[in-house]
Design a protein around this nucleic acid. Structure first.
Length: 933
DNA sequence: CATCTGGAACCAGGC
DNA sequence: AGGCCTGGTTCCAGA
C-alpha cells in the first residue's frame, strides 16, 4: 500500500522519473527502518535493556572547544574547530567530506584548543569534483577555488528536513519562513552588518556535526563519525565502507527519500493530504543526493549513510561556507564577493518557495539555504569562497589524513551537533526560565500550536551574562535532541517561528544544515535577555525523515526535544566565542505527554541504604496504580538490582506520589551508590530514570545534612528537588566546583570565575548538553538570582548519563566539560557514553579519540577538580541535585535546597538511554540497510 | 474569521 | 489470521 501511495505522491509532485526509481528503494528503506524501529521499541520497552554503554561513536571531538572560539579573523581560514588542521586539507580529494575529521589529534591537548583547531577550509575542492559538479551545478554551489575551492553545495541534498523545514513548515503556521527577509522584523540587524549577529561571522567553520564526527580519524572506520552519535555512527560505518563520495552519489541516487517521502507519508496514513511537506524533504534529499556532494547539512545528526553522508556533508559545507562567508564579510574579512555561484543563487531563489523545493530536488536542496538569505548571501558567498580558497589553501594537511577523506567541510560556525559550553570567560549564556516539560508539536498539516511556554505561563527566557559591548548579538535557537547522546539537532522536529500579536520578540528563520534556526536579537538595552515567545515546534513526519538518505535516527518514540540556544560573540582578538545552552527536555508527543509519568521533583536525593524514608515525587501523570521501581545497573547496562518501592496509593495524585525508599541491596556499602528509579504506569509507560543515591548507613554524616533537609522538606511537603525529569541534571550546587572545572578544562577561561559575576547560571546550560546542567549551574549560577539553587536548569538529564567523561574536555572547557565530567561519575553505563561524548565534544571532531578513556571516567580532571565536592555531594548532593533551576523558576518549586553538590551525574535517563540504544540499533540496522542498498 | 488547543479518530505495525 | 496494543498523524470542534 504504501508503495502505491508513495508513488502516487511522487507523481503529484513531479519528482520525475528519478522519483519512481527511488521509490522502490525507499520502500525498502522504509521497511527496514520500520523494522528497526520496531526493534527499537522493544528495546525501549525494556528499560532495562538499555545499555548505556552503547557508546555511540560519538566522539565528537572537541567541538566545543573549537567552537567556542573561532577565529574569525580575516584570515580566510576557517577554523574548523577542533579538528585541528588536519582534516580539511586532506579532504581534498573528494573526500571532502571526510575531511572533517580531523583527528583526534585535535585537541586533546592541543594547544590552545580553540585556536589550533581551526581548520581551514580550503579545499572544498576536495570534494570530488564529480560530486560537485554533478550536484553542483545548480544545486550546489561549488566553488572551487583554485586550490581550495570551496564548494558550496546547495543544500538540496538534504532534503528532508531542510527544505521542508524551511519554509514549508514554518510557513504554515508562522509563515514567516519564507520571508527570511522578514528576518528580523525588528530589523535589528542584518547579518551582514553585524558580525556578531550572524554566527557566521566567525570564520571558523566548524564542520558541522558531521565534521565533528568525522573529525576523528579514528573514527574513521565506523566510528568515524561517532558522534553523530546517534545516527552517525551507524552511518558512519556505512560510509566508511562505501567510500564516501563516490558512492554516495552513486548510491544516493536511490534517494529513495525523495520518493520515499511521499511514500512514507502514505504509509502512515491515508489522511495525509499533504505530502508536500514531506516530499519536500525527500525531494531535496533525492536530488541532492544524487549529486555526490550534496549538501553538507546532513548535519550532525546524522546519520549518515552513504549517500546521505555525502550529501550531508556537502550541505554542511555549503552552509558552512555560506556562513563563513557571511562571517567573513561581516567580520570584515574580506569580502567574498561573489563566491556564490550564480546558479546557486538562482536556484535558491527559485526554490525559495517552499513548495517548489519539494518539487524539484535540486531546487529543494537549495531551498534551505537559499532561504537563509538569498538576498544577502549570494554575492557574498562567492566572494567569500574565493577568499577562503586563498586563505585556506594553506591548510595543513595533516598527517592524519585519512585514508579516506571525508568530504566534510566545515563551515564557519560550529556545527550544530557540536557540544559547546554555556559559559566561557566572562560570558555565560543561561536559560533563565525553562520551557514547560510538555509542548505538543504541530504537524505541517495542522496549524501552529503556539509558542513553547514556560511553566509559569510565560515563555522561556534566555540571557547572556558578561557581555558588556554595545553591539547586539544574535541568539540562535534550534530544536535539539533530548536523549542521552550528545546534543544535536533533532531530525524530527524543527523550530517554528511564531509571529503575531502575542509575540513580542523579533525573530528570523535561518536554515543551517537542514536544521531550521531562529535568530533572535540579543540587545544590550534588554540586558542581553530575550523572551522566547516566538518559537513553536514543528513535527516532521517520521516517514519523511527516516527516508532520508543519511538519516539514521528513528522517529518513533523519539519525541523529546530541547531548545538549544547559541550565541556567537566576536572578540577583539578576532576570535569568536560560541556558547550554547540547552533547555530541559520537552515532550512533544500528545500521547506521551498525556500518558507517560513524568518526575520533575523528588524530595530526597540520597538516603542511607536502610531506606524506609518516604520520598515525595512531583510530576505529572501519576496514577494510583503507578509503580516506582529502583534500579541499579552495571556499566555494561545489565541490571544489578531492581526492586519495586512501596507507593502510598492513598496519597497518589496526578502530580504527586509518595514512595518509601526501599533498602538497598547491600547495606554495607562504603561509598555512595547511585541508582535510578522510575515511575511506571504500565507496560510502556515509564518515566525517565531519576537518580537516587544510597549512602552508607553508617555514615549518616554525609547524608545527614542533606537528609535532614530532605526529610524536613520531604515530609512537609516537600521540598522536593526538582529534577528535571529526565534526570536532569541536577544542579547541584556544586557550583564552585563545577565552575572551576570548566575553566580548567577549557583552558579557556571558563566561566567559573566569573560565575560570580555572571548571573545566574543557567541551568540549562548544558552547554553541552548533557549533563552539564548541574555543573553549569554552578558555574554560572552565581549570579543568577533566580536560582539560588540551581537555576533552572534544565538540564538535560539525559545527558547526564554520560557521566564519565572525564574527559576532558577537550571540548569546551568550560562548564560543559566540567559538567560532563562530573556526571560521568554517575552511572556506569553512562560513563561509556560520556566518554564518547566527551571525546566527541571535546575533541571536536575526534570522535573517537578519547573514547578510550571512557572507562575511567571519573578520574579525569574533572574529578580532580570536583571530586571533593562530589564526595560531599554524594551525600548531600543527592538531594540537592534534584532541583533544577528551571523547575524552580517555573514550578516555583522552591529550590529550597541548595544543595550543592552532588555530582551525581548520572541522571541518565535510562529511558533515553534505552531509546538511544534502540535508536542506535536502529541506526545500525538502517545503516546496514543503506549500505546494502 | 483565524488561531490555538485539547481530544480523539484513523491507521499502520508489532506482537 | 485475527485481535489487541502502541503510537504517529490527521481531523474536529470549542475557546
Amino acid at each position: 500500500m504504501q508503495d502505491t501511495s508513495s508513488l502516487s505522491v511522487k507523481a503529484k509532485f513531479n519528482f520525475g522519473a528519478a522519483a519512481g526509481a527511488a521509490a522502490g528503494q525507499e520502500r525498502g528503506l522504509q521497511r527496514l527502518k520500520s523494522t528497526a524501529a520496531a526493534d527499537m521499541k522493544s528495546a525501549e520497552e525494556d528499560a532495562y535493556n538499555y545499555t548505556p554503554n552503547v557508546s555511540l561513536p560519538i566522539g565528537m571531538g572537541n567541538p566545543c572547544l573549537s567552537t567556542q572560539y573561532h577565529t574569525l579573523q580575516s584570515s580566510p581560514v576557517i577554523p574548523v574547530s577542533s579538528c585541528h588542521q588536519t582534516g580539511y586539507s586532506v579532504q581534498n580529494d573528494n573526500h571532502a567530506a571526510s575531511s572533517y575529521y580531523l583527528p583526534q589529534a585535535l585537541r586533546p591537548n592541543g594547544a590552545p584548543a580553540l585556536e589550533s583547531p581551526r581548520i581551514e577550509i580550503t579545499a572544498y575542492s576536495q570534494y570530488p569534483e564529480d560530486e560537485v559538479e554533478a550536484s553542483g551545478r545548480e544545486d550546489h554551489i561549488i566553488k572551487r577555488g583554485v586550490n581550495s575551492i570551496v564548494t558550496l553545495t546547495l543544500p538540496n541534498v538534504d532534503g528532508y528536513r531542510d527544505p521542508s523545514c524551511l519554509s514549508p513548515a514554518s510557513s504554515i503556521s508562522s509563515r514567516s519562513c519564507n520571508s527570511e527577509a522578514s528576518s528580523y522584523e525588528s530589523g535589528f540587524y542584518n547579518y551582514d552588518n553585524s558580525p556578531q549577529n550572524s554566527p557566521w561571522q566567525s570564520p571558523s567553520v566548524s564542520p558541522r556535526g558531521s565534521s565533528s564526527l568525522l573529525s576523528c580519524p579514528h573514527a574513521i572506520g565506523p566510528a568515524a563519525s561517532p558522534h553523530h552519535s546517534p545516527s552517525n555512527s551507524p552511518q558512519i560505518g556505512a560510509m566508511a565502507e562505501e567510500g564516501w563520495p563516490a558512492q554516495p552519489r552513486g548510491s544516493r541516487p536511490n534517494s529513495p527519500s525523495c520518493s520515499g517521502v511521499g511514500g512514507g507519508n502514505s504509509g502512515g496514513i491515508g489522511k495525509r493530504k499533504y505530502s508536500f511537506s514531506g516530499s519536500s524533504y525527500q525531494q531535496t534529499s533525492c536530488s541532492p543526493n544524487q549529486s555526490p556532494t550534496p549538501s553538507s547539512h546532513g548535519s550532525p545528526r546524522v546519520s549518515v549513510t552513504d549517500e546521505n553522508w555525502l550529501t550531508n556533508t556537502n550541505q554542511y559545507t555549503n552552509l558552512a561556507i555560506v556562513a563563513a562567508i557571511n562571517a567573513l564579510t561581516t567580520d570584515g574579512m574580506a569580502d567574498m564577493g561573489e563566491g556564490i555561484p550564480i546558479k546557486t543563487r538562482k536556484t535558491m531563489l527559485d526554490l525559495s518557495p517552499s513548495m517548489s523545493l519539494k518539487v524539484e530536488p535540486g531546487g529543494e536542496d537549495l531551498g534551505p539555504e537559499g532561504e537563509l538569505r538569498h538576498d544577502e548571501y549570494p554575492s557574498r558567498l562567492s566572494l567569500k569562497k574565493e577568499n577562503y580558497c586563498g586563505g585556506f589553501l594553506d591548510v595543513p594537511q595533516h598527517p592524519y589524513s585519512w585514508s579516506k577523506p571525508k568530504p566534510y567541510l566545515s563551515p564557519s560556525l560550529p556545527a550544530l551537533d557540536w557540544q559547546l559550553p554555556s559559559c566561557s570567560g566572562p560570558y555565560s549564556l543561561q536559560i533563565e526560565v525553562q520551557p514547560k516539560s510538555h509542548h505538543r508539536a504541530h504537524y505541517e498539516t495542522e496549524g501552529s500550536r503556539g509558542a513553547v511556554k514556560a511553566l509559569s505561563g510565560g515563555h522561556p527566557v534566555v540571557q547572556l551574562y558578561g557581555y558588556m559591548e554595545s553591539e547586539p548579538l544574535t541568539l540562535q535557537l534550534f530544536i535539539g535532541t533530548a536523549d542521552d547522546r550528545l546534543l544535536r539537532p533533532h531530525a524530527f522536529y524543527q523550530v517554528h517561528r511564531i509571529t503575531g500579536k502575542t509575540v513580542s520578540t523579533a525573530s528570523h528563520e535561518v536554515m543551517q544544515s537542514n536544521t531550521k534556526m531562529l535568530e533572535i536579537p540579543l540587545l544590550p538595552e534588554n540586558n542581553m535577555r530575550a523572551i522566547i515567545d516566538c518559537a513553536g515546534i514543528l513535527k516532521l513526519r517520521n516517514s519523511d525523515i527516516e527516508l532520508r538518505k543519511g538519516e539514521t535516527d528513528i522517529g518513533r518514540k523519539n519525541t523529546r526535544v530541547r531548545l538549544v540556544f547559541r550565541v556567537h560573540i566576536n572578540q577583539p582578538n578576532g576570535r569568536t566565542v560560541s556558547l550554547q545552552v540547552a533547555s530541559n527536555p520537552i515532550e512533544c508527543s500528545q500521547r506521551s505527554a498525556q500518558e507517560l509519568p513524568l518526575v520533575e521533583k523528588q524530595s530526597v536525593e540520597s538516603y542511607p541504604t536502610t531506606g524506609g524514608k518516604m520520598m515525595l515525587l512531583g510530576g505529572l501523570n501519576f496514577l494510583p496504580e503507578s509503580k516506582v521501581v529502583f534500579v541499579e545497573k552495571a556499566q555494561d547496562g545489565h541490571h544489578l538490582w531492581e526492586t519495586e518501592a512501596k507507593v502510598d496509593k492513598d496519597s497518589v495524585k496526578t502530580n504527586t506520589l509518595v514512595v518509601e525508599i526501599p533498602p538497598y541491596r547491600n547495606q554495607r556499602i562504603s561509598s555512595p551508590v547511585q541508582v535510578n528509579f522510575y515511575v511506571c504506569n504500565g507496560k510502556r509507560k515509564r518515566s525517565q530514570y531519576q537518580r537516587f543515591t544510597y549512602v552508607p548507613a553508617n555514615v549518616p554524616i554525609i547524608k545527614t545534612e542533606p537528609t535532614d533537609e530532605y526529610d524536613s522538606l520531604g515530609s512537609v511537603g516537600l521540598s522536593m528537588h526538582s529534577k528535571p525529569y529526565y534526570g536532569q541534571p541536577r544542579l547541584t550546587s556544586i557550583m564552585p566546583v563545577a565552575e572551576p572545572d570548566p575553566c580548567l578544562v577549557g583552558g579557556y577561561p571558563p566561566c567559573p570565575p566569573r560565575h560570580a559575576a555572571m548571573p545566574p547560571s543557567s541551568p540549562s546550560s548544558s552547554p553541552t548538553l548533557h549533563d552539564l546542567s548541574p555543573v553549569a549551574y554552578n558555574k554560572c549560577l552565581p549570579n543568577s538570582p533566580t536560582r539560588a539553587t540551581p537555576p533552572g536548569t534544565v538540564a538535560p538529564p539525559i545527558q547526564e548519563t554520560p557521566c564519565c567523561p572525564s574527559l576532558p574536555y577537550p571540548t569546551s572547557p568550560d562548564h560543559n566539560s566540567s559538567l560532563v565530567v562530573l556526571h560521568s561519575q554517575g552511572s556506569p553505563g553512562s560513563l561509556g557514553y560520556q566518554h564518547s561524548v566527551y571525546a566527541n565534544s571535546s575533541s571536536s571532531s575526534s570522535p573517537v579519540s578519547h573514547p578510550s578513556t571512557p572507562g575511567g571516567p571519573a578520574e579525569t580532571p574533572f574529578f580532580q577538580a570536583y571530586s571533593p565536592s562530589q564526595a560531599e555531594a554524594s551525600g548531600s548532593s543527592a538531594q540537592a541535585a534534584g532541583s533544577p533551576p528551571s523547575l524552580l523558576a517555573e514550578d516555583a518549586t522552591p529550590p529550597s535546597m541548595d544543595i550543592t553538590i552532588k555530582q551525581e551525574p548520572q541522571e541518565l535517563d535510562q529511558m533515553y538511554l534505552d531509546d538511544v540504544n534502540e535508536i542506535i540499533r536502529n541506526d545500525l540496522s538502517s545503516i546496514s540497510v543503506h549500505t546494502h542498498a
